[in-house]
Design a protein around this nucleic acid. Structure first.
Lengths: 333, 333
DNA sequence: TTGTATGCGTTATCAA
DNA sequence: TTGATAACGCATACAA
């Protein structure tokens, strides 16, 4: 079924059929009804590729994310997809993994599908090494690139993110004031968000005028129990920490399991703070205190930015929002 | 940059350019090199919409899922996306929510984008009321429809699923043999998978020749702590259960928190079995025993089925796999 | 108000 | 080995 079939059945030209489809007012009620009836009868739908060809868009957004089985990223994708759909856009999902080369080739793939914009979901897309971000800047020459929780300063790249550094700095300062001065900062990987959290941690010690040992900073990736075991060893061999500030809630849960294994009383003897306010933090007892990075706001802002950009409106290149501290059972403040 | 620009620069016709692009052997090495050089130089990419128009496909699969922030579904999507991409297909993601009307309209939307196949991720897409599945059958008239973890018997609908009923039946039988004869079956919603799990639970009691009270079956949706509170009330007011078989791990964690709140010793005094082998089950102490429904296998089978169908090969309409019991700390067997 | 003709960027058929 | 041209399905400027 195409526009010619409909036009024949209705005894009109394809131009008229096209007008009816696009709600032109320059069609008589009579013919409009006739054409509409036949469309309904035949279940006609205009060919999306043909429309794409003429309009040079199929109203799709490319969503790049490292790993959509990661709960934080999956939640972001959920918000983004809903938001874009509400604006009439479909989302092409692309799970890139964490390797740069893969991300570069997948970004090209997505661009070749002629998406209207590219969304980088999660801070892992911004590399520390400047040249490694060139592929993002190249992409931004073709379509707007927006980043959720990462920041890259470039003309057609728009970023919405949470002030992780400030949040971590604040809670670390609180811990110090509570007397926890041997805090371990536990994070998963080098990423825009990772460095900023670390910077916040360091800043708290600087502000307090306290010496910070590099043993207090630990980068580790592994599943919950692997990390717990690693912590048990680290505690014995390297550093006797009295609290943990974690880069995400899963690391926080690992610290929680570590503390339980050691028989430490939480939160008086041992305090823990997670990050992301995710479901895993509420599975343990006592539940994990955490920082909520207002993902829903960040995502809806991202969607709105893309829409505004596509409508030719001016949009701030950087939007920053502060995190919210969620007090639960693993801290006293 | 389009094929005409390239052809002009190379001093050849568009037909030759097209041949070069598609690796035809009927092009002299000399002109091939010339065209290739200019393509590289200009960064030319063929227009995806135009190709879509001629081939009537853009190599995309529509992924429908109720809620991709649900960890189980997100994991499935992760596997599916990787699998389809490895086969040269992109995925359009569509989070439908749980309402039938929304799902119906979104399925139409996805079809109007001319995807090559539709994947229903999760068992919630199959409705108990037969007419409510008609929209799926209608869709299957246009493109192959495949279901992950749900079953619908119809010519162009292909299903891969885990034998939830058998799995639940087996563990329930084990519980009965261990002396836990007041098990509460806790599930979240009516769905294909939900009924089958329930059926398995009932079967275990039938097999054991035991009376099953309808107080032993409880449907509830809510977050982890809401469900825990609900269980505390239910225990006081309605039914003194000694174990829980849960439809998913989060419900299992709720039961876990309930048991802790009551001071029951796990697993001797109170046993719990979750479902899905998800991350939340490993956050609590003792960790949750659970059933792994072999999601990775189910997803890779789904991808392979779609590929085979699109290649015109014959594919079984139903593939069933048994679950794996994961013993952790909330059971004795 | 309606119809004709052209363009969108490819691929593929047929001649040369 | 190459080139001209029709076809894919739709939108639209222009003509009627």
């Amino acid at each position: 079924m195409n526009i010619y079939d409909i036009s024949k059945k209705a005894g009109v030209s394809i131009a008229t059929v096209s007008r009816v489809m696009n709600g032109s007012d320059k069609v008589s009620e009579k013919t409009r009804k006739k054409v509409l009836d036949i469309m309904k009868e035949t279940g006609y739908t205009p060919n999306a590729f043909a429309r794409g060809l003429t309009f040079n868009t199929m109203s799709t957004i490319g969503l790049l994310c490292a790993d959509c089985s990661d709960h934080f990223l999956a939640t972001a994708i959920s918000y983004l997809e809903k938001g874009f759909r509400a604006n009439g856009y479909d989302c092409i999902l692309c799970c890139t993994g964490y390797e740069l080369a893969t991300r570069q080739s997948y970004l090209k793939l997505i661009l070749s599908k002629k998406v209207d914009a590219v969304v980088l979901v999660g801070s892992t897309f911004i590399e520390e090494n400047i040249e490694d971000n060139q592929y993002l800047i190249d992409a931004s020459l073709e379509v707007p690139v927006v980043s959720v929780n990462g920041y890259l300063d470039s003309p057609n790249i728009y970023c919405t993110l949470c002030d992780d550094a400030e949040a971590i700095c604040n809670v670390t300062t609180q811990l110090i004031q509570e007397g926890f001065q041997k805090t371990l900062f536990l994070y998963r990987s080098a990423s825009y968000s990772g460095w900023h959290k670390l910077a916040g941690f360091k800043k708290a010690y600087r502000n307090a005028g306290l010496e910070l040992s590099n043993k207090q900073i630990l980068c580790h990736h592994g599943d919950i129990n692997e990390t717990k075991e690693m912590l048990l060893q680290y505690y014995e061999k390297d550093f006797k920490f009295d609290s943990v500030v974690a880069g995400d809630d899963e690391l926080g849960v690992s610290a929680h399991k570590f503390a339980k294994a050691k028989g430490f009383h939480i939160p008086d003897e041992f305090s823990i703070i997670g990050y992301n306010n995710s479901k895993v933090g509420v599975c343990c007892e006592p539940e994990l205190s955490t920082l909520d990075n207002r993902l829903e706001f960040v995502c809806s802002n991202t969607v709105q930015s893309v829409m505004n950009i596509l409508n030719g409106q001016s949009v701030p290149r950087k939007t920053m929002v502060s995190a919210e501290y969620i007090k639960r059972g693993t801290t006293n403040f």
